[in-house]
Write a protein that binds this DNA or RNA. Sequence first.
DNA 1: GATGAATGAGCTTTCATTCAT
DNA 2: CATGAATGAAAGCTCATTCAT
Lengths: 189, 189, 189, 189
Amino acid sequence: MARPLSPEKRNALLQSATLAVAEHGVMATTSSVARGAGVAEGTLFTYFETKDVLFRELYLHLKRSLAQTLMPDYPHDADYPQRAAHVFHRFVNWGLTNAASRHAIARLTSSGLIPDETKLAGMEPFLAVSRMMEDGVREGVLIDAPISFLSSVIEHIADTTIEHVNQHPDAAEHYRQLGFRVLWRAIAP
Amino acid sequence: MARPLSPEKRNALLQSATLAVAEHGVMATTSSVARGAGVAEGTLFTYFETKDVLFRELYLHLKRSLAQTLMPDYPHDADYPQRAAHVFHRFVNWGLTNAASRHAIARLTSSGLIPDETKLAGMEPFLAVSRMMEDGVREGVLIDAPISFLSSVIEHIADTTIEHVNQHPDAAEHYRQLGFRVLWRAIAP
Amino acid sequence: MARPLSPEKRNALLQSATLAVAEHGVMATTSSVARGAGVAEGTLFTYFETKDVLFRELYLHLKRSLAQTLMPDYPHDADYPQRAAHVFHRFVNWGLTNAASRHAIARLTSSGLIPDETKLAGMEPFLAVSRMMEDGVREGVLIDAPISFLSSVIEHIADTTIEHVNQHPDAAEHYRQLGFRVLWRAIAP
Amino acid sequence: MARPLSPEKRNALLQSATLAVAEHGVMATTSSVARGAGVAEGTLFTYFETKDVLFRELYLHLKRSLAQTLMPDYPHDADYPQRAAHVFHRFVNWGLTNAASRHAIARLTSSGLIPDETKLAGMEPFLAVSRMMEDGVREGVLIDAPISFLSSVIEHIADTTIEHVNQHPDAAEHYRQLGFRVLWRAIAP
DNA sequence: GATGAATGAGCTTTCATTCAT
DNA sequence: CATGAATGAAAGCTCATTCAT
């Protein structure tokens, strides 16, 4: 595949796929994705060889976009709880603002279409976060557990938080704080 | 009655569906489910009107079977951490022993095929657990958070624990303890 | 097939089949026929070996019941127009009273499921009518045309009449007379 | 446009459907229609959304093709019997030449798949014929009856004629004349 | 004889992918 | 490169018929 001509079309396809997957999971059809992107059915396949490839690239795309949201303005010099709070709240914000992306990732993750290899690649953009956690563990401000364990716990508590905020928008701040308090207790020794 | 509907066949179908859904999610085909249950394709539809109905009933079936695993031998008179540990370890055991069931539930949950109504019905068998948590909150031994929040946290930490035990069977006991420690810190005030 | 035990069941099946065929044509399902007759699905097949057999027997049954309606009180000694009128009006009455039967016959006739042999057999009950027409032709009070031609014309004009009466019940008498006038002109020399 | 929908393919499908419906009624399978048209099973559905749509469009197509046969060379200035004879004989010719079309229309009409709306639309192409009949009624050369009544009578007598010619090809001319004589007597005052 | 669960061939329809235009 | 018609395998579901009860 030579370099595809139009990045706009590629993005349109990924965005359309995000919505489609959020709504229909892997049962989303390529033709609906193409329609949503405003391109012809066949065009999708000049940008993504296969439906599976599309989904794998979508997965990476979404993971990357999440990762990019977490780190900017990271308070490198603040104390640990504050640094963790930064990441946590950014995560929650992202989930609240990008509901479709969040759903799409969740569905792709549990679809069986994303091979371990791709899942691994999906962690790469989070290297900065991982390193931060490694440091925390080393310095004894985080419990001694594998990064994968810690990430998983963070991810799921953030997720739970997001869901509760979505269901009770009035108590948003309350749940945010609850979520972080629970998280910090969980991972601090 | 000529030949009553056979509970064995129904169970065989549910079991076959568990495996099929664990492996292929909602893309599992009715014919593969029937084949796995050793019945004709058409027979599936005398037990479950529709593929969707099959999946909904499967969801409830699995939730129920999980719930039934949690409560037996519940130490009503032990202290709270011990009671929580009972539930947690039962959960983890169930997930380790019933990998397919665990996957199937996960995939069904995020498939979009299970309506909220059914999800609600799926909580019913966990009433005993819910009540336990309510008591805990009231007595001040659990943090003041909605049951749904607490359950979600428990569920996901248990899940994380299960996954790590699966990946590192040698360190099973280690991860079990880690998991419970993290959980208890997360939910105890 | 030994003599089936219950003529009531057989009749119930034929009646249910009449309704079903009137509504759905040959796509009527055997199970809906059985349900409508209040018997089990399998029972239908002890009365009629096959769906096709059921339909063929239904065809004959309906033809017979129509024929039996035409002849009673036939005015053997009246003049020809009056005798023709008797048959015509009886036909129309039957069609108005037995809408389902009429539809069922029509749909069976054009279904391709009724072999010529059966159609021939279906004419047998109309022998008296045929003979009447033959006499008419011989005596010169009916045009010189094959009985099949004359019957067909009578049948269709009666049918047209029935349909118009159904659509304009207020003008029932008008259409009845119109129909007969047209018919008599058509077949009188 | 990449490849425009091909009118040839559409026609091939309609023609194949004509044969299939003539032979099997509405039980004709879409796959046999596609095969008969020399296209893939799926292609049928790019031309007709649904089997039902196919049949509705086929109905209209056949009605239109019949209508187009009736009017050319219509002797506007001849006397009424001659004008009626023109239409009648054209009808009969069409039925003899297009046996499959005739059967197909008959079966579709009594299939229950053609909604009244479509049947109404199927009359539109016969507007010229209808107007002719209206004129005849107004001028007193046709009996005073609704057009629907007259059309129905014409149609059925033509049909009867066609069937008798088909069964006795040697006496074709005889039955043609008989048919028209009967018809004219039926509808002339 | 009556019942209705079991069967599996067969049907309509969808959809990822190809390729002529 | 973009397009969308063409393809046909595969899916879910129906239903006439059989046969264990």
